[in-house]
Amino acid sequence: MKESPQERPMVEAWTDGGCRPNPGPGGWGVLLRFGGKEREISGADPDTTNNRMEMTAAASALEALTRPCRVTLYTDSAYVKDGMTRWLTGWTRRNWRSASGDPVKNMDLWKRLLDAAQPHDVTWVWVKGHSGHPENDRVDALATSALEAATSEPPS
């Protein structure tokens, strides 16, 4: 018997990504909360942009879930939230073209994010970054640590 959306587990996903400089090396971080447990994941890319790292964090959060869930995904990226809640319908209707007719930037990651969100019931929530929000600060630190680990010189 198929599970109804109301029966799906509830998950909180906190995501962040960034670069130093932009574009340049980047990192992303995720905090997942489910049933009183937490899981952190993070990663880095040697040559990317802030937007790509924000999108990678959100996609990675959703891809980490092993079954359909009700997800509240928190991001400090208006680009990610607006892309998924406002712009995506038009882009797909126009065959991945912007309103001006240009190809959508970061189309590969928008498609990845769309696929990752598909099995879930996702509520996208924007939070102000760098404003003392504990979970947002935590995923920012994860992203920064991943970036620093990826760009540090190995010991000789």
Rank of each mutant, 00 (worst) to 15 (best):
E135N: 15
S156V: 15
V127S: 03
R39W: 01
H130I: 05
P25D: 01
H120N: 04
R20W: 08
W126L: 10
G43C: 08
P5W: 01
S4I: 10
V127Q: 06
P155R: 10
D137P: 14
T15A: 03
L62S: 10
V139F: 02
D76C: 13
G17H: 03
W91R: 11
C69A: 09
A146V: 08
D82A: 12
L113T: 11
V71P: 15
L62R: 12
S77R: 09
G26F: 01
P119A: 02
T66M: 03
A78C: 08
L31I: 15
S77P: 13
D108T: 11
E3M: 10
D102P: 05
P119Q: 08
G18H: 05
R8G: 02
E148S: 05
V139I: 10
R112Q: 08
D16A: 13
M55S: 12
R94V: 03
N50F: 00
S145C: 05
A44I: 09
K2R: 14
H133T: 13
Q6L: 13
P9D: 01
T49Q: 02
G90Q: 09
S98A: 05
S152E: 12
M55P: 15
W91C: 07
T92L: 00
M107N: 09
D102V: 05
E12F: 10
A44K: 09
G29W: 02
L73E: 10
T15H: 10
F34E: 13
E7A: 13
A59H: 02
M55N: 12
S4N: 09
E54A: 04
R39S: 01
S77W: 02
G35T: 15
L114R: 15
V125K: 11
M53I: 13
Q6T: 15
L62P: 14
W91M: 07
W124P: 12
Q6F: 06
W91Y: 06
T85Q: 06
R138S: 08
D47I: 06
H120L: 01
A58V: 15
N136E: 04
W28Q: 11
K37D: 01
T48A: 00
S4P: 11
D82P: 11
